[in-house]
Amino acid sequence: MIKIQTLNNIAKNGINEFSDKKYSIQTNINDPDGILLRSYSMHKMVIPASVKAIARAGSGVNNIPIDECTSRGIVVFNTPGANANAVKELVLTSLLLSSRRIIEGVEWTRSLFGEKNISNIVESGKKEFAGVEIAGKKLGIIGLGAIGALVANDALALDMEVYGYDPYISVDTAWRLSRNVQRIDNLEQIFSTCDYITIHVPLTKDTNKFVNEKLLSLMKKGSRLFNFSRGELVDEFALEHALNNGTVGVYVTDFPNENVIGLKNVIPIPHLGASTIESEENCARMAAKQLKNYLETGNIKNSVNFPNVELPFTGKKRITISHKNIPNMVGQITGLLAKYAVNIADMLNRSKGSYAYTMIDLDETINEQVEQLLTEIDGVISVRVI
């Protein structure tokens, strides 16, 4: 029985990916083989030695101790693109919310409860909430991944001029992106050119507070800035200054905190980007499939800490080895198997940064002695026989 621990409520269609006969899925479970979660923070959690993989039903993995997992050979999955449509729709909503003063107008109208002649009051007071149209305006998109590409294509349909910045754009995304999106080579041009700027990049050491005083000072007076990726991407002290002097006309964030919630012209959305029934189901199903596939076949897809590795599973004995990405690792592994007359039917090796993953299909079984000797090779992190 393969044991799966859930640290959050997971959509039923995700749980249904696991067979009742083969899997045990519980919140409280001893020695789980895999962990399935959403936003639960694992940083203070003692991760059992039995854990082979963790799947996050969502794109961000800052709630998971990635470095610890990698050093232990635990594969961490996320679900890029599964919530893309939900986030895209909220970005499009924000284009209108930030332009037409809809929230302020609705709040003012509600305050009229109990007054007489409300229709007349509304007609005389509505001029205070005049806004601007988005058609013909320039939208800058930083990050043209699954979400950014969807935003770009739909914004074009709304008659906006769309500019995109992404030095790491994938071939798949490039195929999906409209040819009418204008590619920009530097952030300075995005910030100095566009009326609206939306951020869709992951939070890393390099992107932390990358939207800083210098970039914000380049913005056109009254420009709108949207953050549906991570709050830490924006230097909040520089943002406060830009809001106060009117450089940033409106800041829409899906990550409100004590620093920004009291600032003027901020629309603080309570982290609703992926909060749709469809998004939660898509993320749960995708995370469950990736976790199940890895536990049953060793194949890796959409891991944040190990390379994508996929070899058709024929039912033969398979060895998967997580190891350091250093010279002669594959030679030592195959040499050991040859020494003990273990014949290799197929093999695949891929690396990602300082770590690598080797998958080997065998023509026969492997005894525990050889398995143990593989774990003793200097640089090997974990060995699994499927």
Rank of each mutant, 00 (worst) to 15 (best):
I197P: 09
R350M: 14
E278A: 13
N83H: 02
I25Q: 10
N13W: 09
E258M: 08
E213K: 06
S303P: 08
P65M: 07
V330P: 09
M42H: 03
N245I: 06
F237D: 14
V309N: 10
K127Y: 12
N208Q: 11
I147L: 02
G164S: 09
I321H: 04
I142N: 08
N293H: 05
T276A: 08
R176F: 11
Q182K: 15
K116G: 01
V87H: 05
I197E: 02
Y168R: 11
L90W: 10
S98A: 13
G164K: 06
S322Y: 12
K316D: 13
A149K: 09
S351Q: 15
L158T: 07
N186D: 14
V260L: 04
D172P: 15
A84T: 04
T93L: 15
L139F: 02
K292F: 03
I321T: 05
A338Q: 07
P65I: 08
V252R: 10
K137P: 05
S354T: 13
P256C: 08
E376I: 00
E128M: 14
I10N: 12
V162S: 04
F18C: 08
T6K: 14
I121N: 04
I377V: 01
L348V: 14
T109H: 01
V122M: 14
D166L: 05
N244I: 10
C283V: 12
N293G: 11
I54S: 06
I269K: 00
R72N: 00
V106E: 13
A57K: 11
V162Q: 06
K264T: 02
N83F: 05
L336F: 06
Q26C: 13
P312R: 04
Q182Y: 14
V171P: 03
A55N: 02
V248T: 09
L7H: 11
P270C: 00
N83C: 05
K209C: 10
T27V: 11
N299K: 05
A86R: 09
I319D: 01
E371P: 05
F210V: 05
E364D: 15
L156D: 04
D172L: 14
N30D: 15
L311F: 10
F129Y: 07
L177E: 12
D206R: 15
D346Y: 07
D235P: 07
L90A: 03
N78M: 11
L374I: 04
E188W: 01
I29A: 11
Y40S: 09
Q332T: 08
K214L: 04
F77H: 12
S24T: 12
L362M: 06
S111F: 01
T6Y: 09
A82N: 01
S303D: 02
R318V: 15
V211L: 05
L36N: 00
A11F: 13
R350P: 08
N367Q: 06
V383G: 03
F306N: 03
I47Q: 06
E17V: 13
G114P: 08
I169L: 10
F306C: 01
M219A: 04
R285M: 08
G143L: 04
I344F: 14
I197D: 06
I54V: 07
H200F: 05
P65N: 00
Y294W: 02
V76I: 08
I326V: 12
T253D: 00
A11W: 15
M219S: 12
T6G: 09
N62H: 11
P65K: 03
N343I: 12
D166N: 10
A86F: 02
